[in-house]
Amino acid sequence: MPVRVETFSQVEEAARALSSNQKARIYGGGTILMRSVNEGDQSFDTLFRLTDPTLKDIRSEGDRVLIGAAVTMAEIIRHRDLSFLADAARAVGGPAIRTTATIAGNLLAPPPYGDLATALVALGAEVRFAGQGSANVPIDEFMRDRESRKGSVVTAVSVPRLADPTALRFLKVTRVKPKGVALMSIAALLPRAGGRIDGFRIAYGNMGPTPLRVAAVERALEGSSLDEAGITRAAAVATEGLDPPTDALASAWYRREVAPVHLRRLLLGQTG
């Protein structure tokens, strides 16, 4: 049975309609949803298209940048205020995916996807929903109960504007060259204050049900200056408390074995 498509020019209206229709899905870029449509997925029967132009905005808000839900990977890569997100956005699919794939879709993408979302977790992004004004949900909280948010409409993602764009490092580990889905991705926020780094945030993609922060690694690094000893301490706890998946690319065992190696490379800056 084909899906029905309804178009909304007001996000709030779509949010109201979505809350009373379990079989409707928000259509972002459609790079995930259209695959389901093409193969006749019956778990939804309606697509909500949002044409509200504010969803395409990228604008400053104090010391943060607000990125509209429908902004694509290609638009992030091109935007001069978002250069710190370009590596992660470039890691998503090929060029014809990136012109279409949206930031909100990436936040909600199931494993093995969510490369940009991994960088957003490390950055300490916040997620904004329709019907909640300018109240933001911290991304850690968003990821913790992501499944239960399926009935809400994301309107924007707010990220801190990094004074030093190199403070965010991103690495995607894949087995297919030049492009493939992530075996794991790693993002690290390393804000320098004096000679030290203060407020490490480390996130992994495809090492659990959603992109997630790696508390054990953050603790091991805290107060260090990214020296050999600190990095070795961090690598030793690289997968502590995690339950990585087994999928077509790799087993959970393999992910545990290689995670410390890749984490180490990222922290040493050997990712070129």
Partner: peptide
Amino acid sequence: IDGEPCLSCLTLAET
């Protein structure tokens, strides 16, 4: 589409 490469199989025709 408007000069940008897109996958037509993943694009809703009406867009």
